[in-house]
């Protein structure tokens, strides 16, 4: 499966990674090379095989639905590039 420049642009946008227009052709080539390598999986007969969902057979553990943590606003904001008045600050998202 070859990836064209439009697909490369779309994937970069979906991944929220800015790729300059001039670099899209090289990216498309690299991604195509990797996908080409994956094409081998098409040879395998997977009829009747369930996709693996758990590495070891185990039930997902449940716990009581109660608050076990909290009141650590300062710790949560400590590493933020821009924190103001107890919030994470980002560029304006609504007009």
């Amino acid at each position: 499966m070859a990836i064209d420049i439009d697909t490369a642009r779309r994937v970069a946008h979906l991944a929220r990674i800015r790729v300059e227009e001039d670099d899209l052709a090289a990216l498309a080539g690299e991604l195509s090379g990797i996908l080409n390598f994956m094409e081998q999986l098409g040879e395998v007969d997977v009829t009747g095989i369930e996709p693996m969902t758990s590495v070891t057979p185990m039930r997902l553990v449940r716990r009581a639905d109660v608050v076990t943590d909290g009141n650590i606003q300062a710790q949560i904001l400590a590493n933020a590039p821009d924190a103001r008045e107890g919030f994470f600050a980002v560029p304006k998202v609504v007009e």
């Binding site: 994937v11 979906l14 990797i34 996908l35 999986l41 395998v44 997977v46 095989i49 996709p51 693996m52």
Partner: peptide, 24 residues
């Protein structure tokens, strides 16, 4: 980006689900 592609609509079954079956 490869991960984004193999999980994107239209390719999820062909790549990701197939890989999980081969993994089994």
């Amino acid at each position: 980006m490869i991960g984004t592609y193999v999980l994107s609509a239209g390719f999820y079954d062909a790549y990701y689900n197939r890989a999980r079956k081969v993994r089994a």
